[in-house]
Design a protein around this nucleic acid. Structure first.
Lengths: 105, 105
DNA sequence: GCTATTGTTTGACAGGCATCAAACAATAAA
DNA sequence: TTTATTGTTTGATGCCTGTCAAACAATAGC
């Protein structure tokens, strides 16, 4: 049994501009930076500390997933989100690195 | 005398998310990819071949400039646009490369 | 001085998007 | 079987954005 989740686009269908649109938002960019530690993260509001309503956060998670950036695994009540790092690095070499790299002053 | 141009934001004020918003559009991404040859390019409609009105193209050029991506030099009637490549590479290492790199199938 | 060229600007319009609030859904715990 | 937890979904709202068309602006050439 594969773990339950939400549908994601196949990486072969994902265009660079889709990724860029998904990531061109302060909150979603920050989410990606956190996910870049390689670990799965809960979607739970308190784990993120953004000053937005939980439905807004859910909307951002959906945008990332549908944009091809993330993958959601559901187990019980908790939803766990991860970066599709290996696939992204293969299809868009250096992109995630560039998004995560701390900018020089 | 420095060549006439349009105001651009200082790179120190430019945030990554500004660049991403500027580039998260099919036409503007394609413009950046063309400019990545390092050469200055005319803004003239026919040099680009996009199927949009010239005022729309002008709007995209403005978005790129205000987003910190490009630099415009005016000489006579012709406007010349270039990528702020050195500054961008310094502040956002690897980003432009990732945007320009041809995606594997 | 006219006229053509090369763009920008402004207005209008439709669609998309970030946000909140409220309702809903599914699971876990009591 | 209630109740609490962890989210999603569905309106509603206001703002932003991509587009075209038309008017404007500046320069070059006749």
């Amino acid at each position: 049994m594969t773990p339950a989740g939400y549908p994601v686009p196949e990486m072969s269908e994902v265009q660079l501009v889709d990724i860029l649109r998904a990531v061109a938002d302060p909150i979603r960019l920050e989410i990606v930076r956190v996910l870049a530690d390689g670990e799965p993260h809960s979607k739970h509001e308190d784990d993120w500390g953004f000053d937005v309503h939980k439905s807004t956060l859910s909307h951002h998670f959906k945008a990332l997933r549908e944009g091809g950036v993330t993958l959601t695994t559901v187990s019980g009540r908790t939803h766990v989100i991860q970066l599709r790092r290996r696939e992204l690095d293969k299809k868009f070499p250096g992109l995630i690195d560039a998004l995560v790299t701390e900018e020089p002053s």
